[in-house]
């Protein structure tokens, strides 16, 4: 795993996202501010000196999300399509839970925006209540979930998925765009372990013939470990539909190789 914000010399570096494909990105973050029960009561009764605490904190969170790039050095300026900040007043635990959802059709993730919205909403809650309570503290600011993007979805609490690829339902993931016509190749399950590779792309002009057999031949010429692709047991799918050696390949096709299935 490489840190994308560092260049090869280890210096801070803004990632060039120009070649990434636009996808629907969504992130949800949450956090909480813990306060004394009587402060919380004043907040719910709208009796704090600075007025409507939650409405102010909501606007602050939304504004902050839009200005994340001004605060976090290597963040891109994003045209968010949606920012929603929500509060859940928890009298039992003496705190306000804050959550923020950010959405964008674009080329970068929006988790920094969601985290910034939560952080600033929490800070605003602190500011609005600090006249009556100095003991408040902000905690557990975290990313809860993230959707879209080449690295796949994330959901806090779920073990790291063992699934391959990151396609949403019923769609074929195209991933990063190649500069010249190419096919994307995936190796699944046991094949991935044998080949020690999960995803790669190869230019169409490198194939001796523009079909699955040609792809196998080109890979074989690259490295002997791809020999397993010619094994009779090895199955192939183009754009998630089963295919044989003579199936034609075109630019941007997703070709997956995998062993016989063993589900159920």
């Amino acid at each position: 795993m490489q840190l994308t914000h560092l260049n090869t010399r280890g210096e801070a570096n803004m990632v060039d996202v120009g070649d990434k494909r636009e996808t629907r990105r969504e992130a949800v973050a949450s956090g909480r501010i813990v306060m004394q029960p009587k402060t919380l009561q004043l907040l719910t009764d709208n009796a704090l000196p600075k007025g409507d605490v939650l409405a102010t904190a909501r606007i602050a969170g939304i504004q902050a999300a839009k200005r994340t790039h001004e605060l976090i050095p290597l963040c891109h300026a994003l045209a968010l399509s949606k920012v929603a900040v929500d509060f859940d007043v928890d009298h039992a635990n003496g705190c306000v839970h804050v959550s923020a959802l950010c959405r964008l059709d674009g080329r970068t993730g929006v988790e920094m925006e969601a985290l910034t919205a939560v952080s600033v909403a929490c800070l605003t809650l602190y500011d609005m209540c600090k006249a009556v309570d100095k003991e408040m503290y902000i905690e557990a600011v975290q990313l809860d979930s993230k959707r879209g993007g080449v690295r796949g979805d994330y959901q806090r609490g779920l073990p790291e998925p063992i699934v391959t690829g990151g396609s949403a339902v019923g769609e074929v993931r195209l991933g990063e765009r190649c500069a010249s016509p190419c096919v994307r190749v995936k190796f699944l399950a046991e094949l991935r372990e044998q080949i020690e590779e999960s995803d790669m792309s190869i230019g169409l002009d490198q194939l001796p013939s523009r079909d699955v057999a040609g792809l196998k031949a080109a890979l074989n010429a690259q490295d002997a470990r791809f020999g397993v692709l010619s094994d009779q047991r090895t199955l192939c799918a183009i754009n998630q539909v089963m295919a044989n050696d003579s199936a034609r390949l075109t630019d941007e096709d997703e070709v997956a190789f995998f062993p016989p299935v063993t589900g159920g």
């Binding site: 063992i162 391959t164 690829g165 396609s167 339902v169 019923g170 997956a256 995998f258």
Partner: peptide, 12 residues
């Protein structure tokens, strides 16, 4: 047991 699948193709 660890179960892997091919998202997208599986559902289809």
């Amino acid at each position: 047991l660890t179960l892997e699948h091919y998202p997208g193709m599986t559902e289809r």
